[in-house]
């Protein structure tokens, strides 16, 4: 007993010294990214928050402090509210469709069907494209490729989903899900493959059928994957920009203008930089609250091995 006590302090001192020497190295290695992070993220963030309390137009050499005027204005801005509604709907549908579809494909392709590598590649391929390209592909698809089917079979189905405010959301959801399902499928696949096979065997021995296995083993074991996917899809959808710019440009009218797009247009087209900064701050707070709630709710449901 006494030997162990006396030997401990020396080992701790020794360890501390070594850790300190290492620390300098690690710190130095971390320094460049840290500097970039501070210069590219933290400083602009603080500047943005400061600007949101001024009347700066983005170009002019003078700035005046105007307090909370911009923030009060946001809640009277119909366009901001409309764009927020659009972004919200886009996020809700994406989260549901992508989660369910990715989960479905993952379970399908984790089974022993034929040519599963082929299907995995096909479903994953669109992930590699840039959203700009996806926007253009689907513009062509709705605009010229699908309507030519109409001509071929003498039909009159309205394929151009991007040219009416009533269908533009559906059109964008199709394009966005087509691109991203493969990515989230991959995460679910990795999750599925990490589930120990002996749990399933135990369930079989206990007389459980495939449905019971799915509900009581697969879904709880995939808890962490569900958390990652849900948060990833939701935040990704809230930040949607390139896809819309490359496909509808926010139109027809303002019907597919996302919040980020509205902020961008306000800052760089209408030259209301400080007002756009205020909107960004509000949007950031919403995102943070949202991510926090999601994390709290989803973490509760996860099981640990």
């Amino acid at each position: 007993m006494s030997i162990t006590i006396s030997s401990k302090p020396t080992s701790i001192v020794h360890k501390k010294k070594r850790v300190n020497a290492r620390n300098i190295q690690y710190f130095l290695l971390l320094l460049p990214p840290l500097v970039f992070f501070i210069v590219a993220m933290i400083i602009p963030l603080i500047m943005g928050i400061y600007n949101s309390f001024t009347d700066w137009d983005g170009i002019s050499l003078e700035k005046n402090w105007i307090g909370f005027t911009n923030y009060i204005e946001i809640f009277k801005d119909e366009m901001f509210i409309e764009s927020f509604k659009f972004t919200g709907l886009f996020m809700i549908f994406n989260t549901i469709i992508q989660n369910v579809a990715a989960f479905f494909f993952a379970v399908m392709l984790d089974s022993s069907i034929k040519a599963k590598n082929f299907y995995r590649t096909i479903i994953f391929a669109p992930v590699l494209l840039s959203p700009i390209l996806v926007g253009q592909i689907w513009t062509k698809m709705y605009g010229t490729i699908l309507p030519s089917i109409n001509d071929l079979f003498a039909l009159s189905i309205n394929f151009n989903l991007f040219s009416s405010p009533n269908t533009v959301l559906t059109g964008l959801l199709v394009a966005n899900n087509w691109q991203w399902i493969g990515y989230w499928m991959l995460i679910y696949l990795a999750g599925l493959q990490a589930v120990p096979k002996d749990i399933y065997e135990a369930c079989t021995v206990d007389g459980g059928n495939w449905w019971q296995k799915f509900i009581h083993i697969t879904i709880p074991m995939l808890g962490p994957s569900i958390t990652i996917c849900t948060i990833g899809i939701a935040t990704g959808s809230l930040k949607v920009y390139e896809l819309i710019v490359a496909s509808t440009g926010g139109g027809p009218g303002d019907s597919s203008k996302s919040t980020i797009m509205h902020i961008y247009d306000t800052a760089f087209m209408s030259q209301q930089s400080s007002y756009a900064s205020a909107m960004s701050v509000v949007f950031l707070l919403v995102l943070l609250i949202f991510a926090f709630i999601q994390l709290k709710v989803l973490r509760k449901r996860e099981v640990e091995l």
Binding site: P165, P252, G253, D254, S255, D265, M269, S270
Partner: peptide, 18 residues
């Protein structure tokens, strides 16, 4: 120009019945 464009968006919404 951004004002002209935005008014254009409102015209579009009117033409499309919104």
């Amino acid at each position: 120009w951004p004002y002209q464009e935005q008014s254009g968006n409102y015209i579009a919404e009117w033409l499309l019945g919104n």
